[in-house]
Amino acid sequence: MWKKCDTGITACFLTFLVISCTDHGLEPVYEGISGKITFIGTWPDSTEWVRLAVFKEMPATVFDIPLKPPVFSDTLPRFVTSTNYRLTLSAGHYDWVVLAWKPKKKIATSDFSGLDTLGMYADAGNPKSPRGIDVPPKRLLTGIDIVADFSVLQPPSPILP
């Protein structure tokens, strides 16, 4: 009986250690957005990078973009079928969350020139209708999923619907 007890205590202790090593307790609390990007179609070989660009206000013309530039994410993984992302943003309303695609050999004179629109956070059933977001204070707004369809890649730059 006591041998079983020895084994039981040892097993409990080891279980505790195993559980402990997979949990890291408190995590950073991000203020921003996160979601999944699903890529449809074939990645063009000319792809240099893909980034998220988030606009406070929808630019009426290309000339408005330098005046109210977007927040860009880091470059996202290329030649994948999907990727999860997380982007830090200040709390507040944003009109447009768009996925920007940049081909090789195109010189981007600024963050937003020479880019094409690959997809956007859109109303359900209408992938071309931008859907605004409200980032709450000190919280991560999740579920901002985007479908990126290479068949509807929209030149010319700069990015506009």
Binding site: S20, C21, D23, H24, G25, L26, E27
Partner: peptide, 14 residues
């Protein structure tokens, strides 16, 4: 703290 566990005992003190 071999498993790098992040916690507080009282508020706002790691």
């Amino acid at each position: 703290n071999v498993f790098q566990y992040n916690y507080t005992q009282v508020e706002r003190t790691m």
